[in-house]
């Protein structure tokens, strides 16, 4: 569906590529021109400076770490926090969907937590877990948890009753129904939850690193701001954007693999 939309907008693939390159060139040109202007230019480094600094950062450390190390620190925080969110959220969603008692018990709790944005947990995270890694994991986990749980819950809850009936007619028992029908029914939703939550978790890690840390992509931005080093701020932003893009591309590829049955066409 996505692909179709893109096509009808830009005509063909090569056409889309040409437009893409064109818009990038214009952006860089305008950016460069603005950076030449005196007063604004001071806080507006030329794009070529940013690109140079970005490349440099892989070899020469910003603070104590090189770019790859910073990315690694941020990614590790996200993976631990997000992983916790997955490990708790998917079973929680399944329990709420499949067991009446489970729903009756968890739903009220969950309804209270659900509307609270993840970042609102910052003060409690600090008070409970201090300024170290644990509070970051907690914050990221809380951000990711809600989306994953909700999507899993709805995916499993709205498994098609006709398919459930068909499986029962073919002799599937309760546990087999869960494994062979309910779980696969929920998988497309679970993936939607994972993708949305990953974006949220990646936001949360930046916020967590801005509060207090000595490394990470969020730290690069914040440190750059403290020293009025605009180029460093933008380098950090570019790194965040690139990592986010790569991660979501990987998740999409995994989804295409696992949900081939759900994708129309070739």
């Amino acid at each position: 569906m996505n692909r179709k939309k893109k096509r009808s907008f830009a005509g063909s693939r090569t056409e889309a590529l040409v437009y893409g390159i064109l818009s990038l060139v214009i952006l860089l040109a305008v950016w460069h021109l603005v950076s030449l202007g005196g007063r604004i230019g001071k806080f507006f480094p030329s794009p070529f400076l940013v690109i140079r600094d970005f490349a440099n950062a892989f070899v020469h450390a910003i603070g104590r770490n090189t770019m790859l190390e910073h990315i690694f620190f941020s990614l590790r925080r996200v993976l631990v926090g997000f992983g916790l969110g997955v490990v708790v959220g998917i079973p929680l969603g399944l329990v709420m969907a499949c067991s009446k008692a489970g729903r009756a018990f968890f739903m009220p709790l969950f309804s209270i937590v659900r509307p609270i944005p993840g970042l609102a947990w910052i003060p409690l995270a600090i008070l409970w877990f201090g300024l170290g890694e644990q509070s970051k994991y907690f914050l990221i986990c809380m951000t990711a948890l809600v989306g994953i749980t909700m999507q899993t819950f709805f995916g499993a809850l709205y498994a098609d009753p006709v398919l459930i009936g068909a499986a029962r007619m073919l002799g599937a028992g309760k546990f087999q129904l869960f494994v062979h029908i309910i779980l696969p029914s929920a998988i497309p939703n679970i993936f939607a939850g994972l993708q949305g939550s990953f974006a949220g978790a990646w936001c949360a890690v930046i916020a967590a690193e801005m509060i207090r840390s000595d490394e990470g992509t969020g730290w690069i931005i914040f440190n750059g701001m403290n020293y009025a080093n605009t180029a460093q701020v933008i380098v950090g932003m570019v790194a965040i954007g690139l990592v986010g893009l790569i991660a979501s591309t990987l998740l999409k590829a995994l989804e295409r693999r696992l949900c081939a049955w759900n994708i129309q066409g070739k």
Partner: peptide, 13 residues
Amino acid sequence: LGMVYQTTALFPW
């Protein structure tokens, strides 16, 4: 008892 459905009730996955 085997059932064949009005709408397709195949397991899409």
